[in-house]
């Protein structure tokens, strides 16, 4: 039982990371039905900027918590700026283009961001300085660290904050109006371009926070780290019902837990014919099964023909 509890904790932590990245995907998708495949690169840039700042600030001998907060505070505007530039230059001109055109620009933007990061931060795996002392707590035979708790709390706070913004503010109302029908929203006096830009920038800010989280939890950053994480988070967003904020959270957590339980139990359940190597297969099979029975994800609304 303690093993099971531990696997749940592992899964929830990993799921929280997926969830925060998935929020970014889902927001952008919700408003303009675009999968921003370069979103993972924003996470990477966030981690890299934080890495540089932490490297600069640690010798100054500040409180570790202050350093991490400062690093995050710097990563956010950098990512926001890139997110804005991305939308303005690569996506906005294509808003009326065939659906797959922005997909290709997104791939292009991904390649560009990765290799710019390579130039700035080298090809090496960058080891995040281990500044926050890891403290472990024991609950019912399982271990949970302060960093894990922080990640889970952060992701919930961010989702809640985002939900508040979208459902309780004027800005959020305008965003939702744009999402529902951009043309009509425009007629109502909403600056659609601004709304879409705001969405991108908000998504980018989330990506920056996710980057700092991933970097400091796993202690490593690499210029290609965004690709895999982005793919998993995209899967999480779809699982939960893309375009739906609580769905992204639910999808992320579900994917994380499924992966952890998959790695933990497939081997024993199949007499070791399959093992942890099939962890991703297991995760994708769960995704496919869910989509076969609920073609718009766990919390998604029925969408029309968009292909």
């Amino acid at each position: 039982m303690d093993i099971f509890l531990q696997q749940l904790i592992n899964g929830l932590t990993l799921g929280s990371v997926y969830a925060v990245v998935a929020l970014g995907y889902t927001m952008v998708y919700g408003i303009i039905q675009l999968i921003n495949f370069a979103h993972g690169e924003l996470v990477m840039i966030g981690a890299m900027v934080a890495f540089t700042l932490i490297g600069v600030l640690v010798p100054a001998g500040m409180n570790p918590l202050v350093i991490v907060l400062l690093a995050t505070a710097c990563a956010i505007p950098v990512c926001m700026l890139i997110g804005y530039a991305m939308e303005r230059l690569a996506y906005r001109p294509l808003r009326r283009a065939p659906r797959l055109a922005p997909l290709i620009t997104a791939i292009g933007v991904s390649i560009i961001l990765q290799h710019l990061a390579l130039l700035v931060w080298s090809r090496n795996n960058l080891a995040f300085p281990q500044i926050i002392k890891t403290v472990s707590y024991h609950i019912g035979g399982a271990t949970i660290t302060n960093v894990q708790i922080a990640i889970m709390v952060m992701s919930v706070v961010m989702m809640a904050g985002l939900a508040l913004l979208v459902y309780r503010t004027r800005l959020g109302t305008a965003m939702r109006a744009t999402a529902q029908n951009a043309q009509v929203a425009g007629l109502m006096g909403i600056d659609i371009n601004r709304m879409i830009a705001v969405t991108f920038v908000l998504g980018a800010a989330l990506a920056a926070v996710a980057g700092v989280m991933v970097g400091s939890y796993y202690g490593i950053a690499h210029y290609q780290m965004g690709a895999l994480l982005g793919m998993k988070a995209f899967a999480a967003a779809v699982l939960g019902g893309i375009g739906n904020l609580p769905g992204a959270m639910l999808g992320g957590l579900t994917l994380g837990v499924v992966e952890a339980l998959g790695a933990g139990y497939i081997g024993d359940l199949t007499g070791n014919v399959f093992g942890s190597n099939y962890q991703d297969v297991f995760a994708f099979l769960v995704l496919i099964t869910v989509l076969v029975f609920r073609p718009s994800g766990l919390l998604g609304e029925r969408v029309g023909d968009r292909a």
């Binding site: 531990q6 592992n10 780290m225 790695a263 933990g264 942890s276």
Partner: peptide
């Protein structure tokens, strides 16, 4: 023990390690 596998990009090993711990 039966082989456990991640990938060359795996950074989260906790699930596999928890299983091994048992």
């Amino acid at each position: 023990l039966p082989r456990e596998k991640g990938t060359d990009k795996t950074t989260d090993w906790k699930a596999i390690l928890t299983k091994l711990k048992g």
